[in-house]
C-alpha cells in the first residue's frame, strides 16, 4: 500500500519540481524591493573614516603646488560665490550639494590624480570625502584645516618667537617663501625692490632699508644659536 502511494507521488515528480520552480521564480518578482546597500561595506567605511591618513597638511600641499605636481587635483567643495571670491590656484569648484552629480563623477572617481578636497574648514570637505569614499572612490584627500588653515599657515604665517625650535624657523622660512610664491607681497621685500630705482632720491627711503638689514641680522644669530 505504502509503495503504491509513493509510486503515485513519484509519477508527479516533474510536475512538482516545475511547480517549485515557478513558485521560486514568482517569489523573486513578488518580493518587496528594498534599497540596496550601495558602495563599500559599513565596516570598511568606518575603518576609513577613523583613519586620519586622508588629511594632507597645508605645508605638504603648498610644496606639491610649488613643485607643480602633475598628479594634483584640487576640488573646492564650498558654494560658488565663495569659490569666486577666493580659492586655491587651479582649484575646481564642486559644491558639496553637487558632489554626487553625474558631472562631478569623472573628477572624483578616477585613478590618475590625487584629489584634494577643501572647504573653509575641513568639515564640509570631510563630508564630501565620506560621501565619495562610501561609493568606493580612491585617491581622495582632505586639506587639514581647509582654507582657514591655509590662510593662517601659508598666506599669513606666524613668525616664531626666539625661544622656539630651529625647525619652527625652517618651517617659517618655507611658509614665507611659499606665500611669496602664491603672490603675497611682504613690505620689506617690496621696498627692497624699489630701493634700486630711486638711488638719488631723498633719504626717507634709506631708513626702511636699514630696518630690513637689521631684521636679517636678527634672524641669523637665532638660527646659529639653535
Amino acid at each position: 500500500m505504502v509503495n503504491r502511494k509513493l509510486v503515485k507521488f513519484l509519477s508527479l515528480r516533474y510536475k512538482i519540481l516545475a511547480f517549485i520552480f515557478i513558485v521560486l521564480a514568482g517569489g523573486l518578482v513578488l518580493l518587496p524591493k528594498h534599497e540596496k546597500q550601495e558602495g563599500i561595506s559599513p565596516e570598511k567605511l568606518l575603518a576609513n573614516t577613523i583613519n586620519p591618513e586622508r588629511y594632507i597638511s597645508t605645508d605638504a600641499l603648498a610644496e606639491k603646488m610649488i613643485n607643480q605636481d602633475p598628479s594634483l587635483l584640487l576640488i573646492d567643495v564650498r558654494n560658488e560665490s565663495d569659490y569666486k571670491k577666493y580659492t586655491l590656484t587651479n582649484a575646481i569648484n564642486i559644491p558639496l550639494k553637487n558632489i554626487l552629480d553625474e558631472e562631478s563623477e569623472p573628477y572624483l572617481n578616477q585613478d590618475a590624480y590625487d584629489v584634494i578636497l577643501f572647504s573653509n574648514d575641513h568639515f564640509h570637505a570631510d563630508q564630501a570625502w565620506i560621501l565619495c569614499t562610501r561609493l568606493g572612490y580612491k585617491n581622495l584627500h582632505v586639506l587639514n584645516g581647509g582654507i582657514n588653515s591655509w590662510y593662517n599657515t601659508i598666506i599669513n604665517p606666524k613668525m616664531p618667537t626666539e625661544d622656539m625650535a630651529h625647525t619652527e624657523f625652517e618651517l617659517y622660512a618655507f611658509r614665507k617663501a611659499a606665500s611669496m610664491y602664491f603672490g603675497v607681497a611682504y613690505p620689506e621685500k617690496v621696498k627692497k625692490a624699489t630701493v634700486i630705482k630711486p638711488v638719488t632720491k631723498p633719504s626717507i627711503t634709506a631708513a626702511p632699508k636699514k630696518v630690513i638689514v637689521k631684521k636679517k641680522k636678527k634672524k641669523l644669530p637665532i638660527e646659529g644659536g639653535c
Binding site: F21, A25, G26, L28
Partner: peptide
C-alpha cells in the same frame, strides 16, 4: 532581472 527570470522559468517549463 526578476521578471526576466520568471518569464524564462515559465518558458523553460
Amino acid at each position: 532581472p526578476y521578471w526576466f527570470v520568471f518569464i524564462l522559468t515559465i518558458v523553460a517549463i
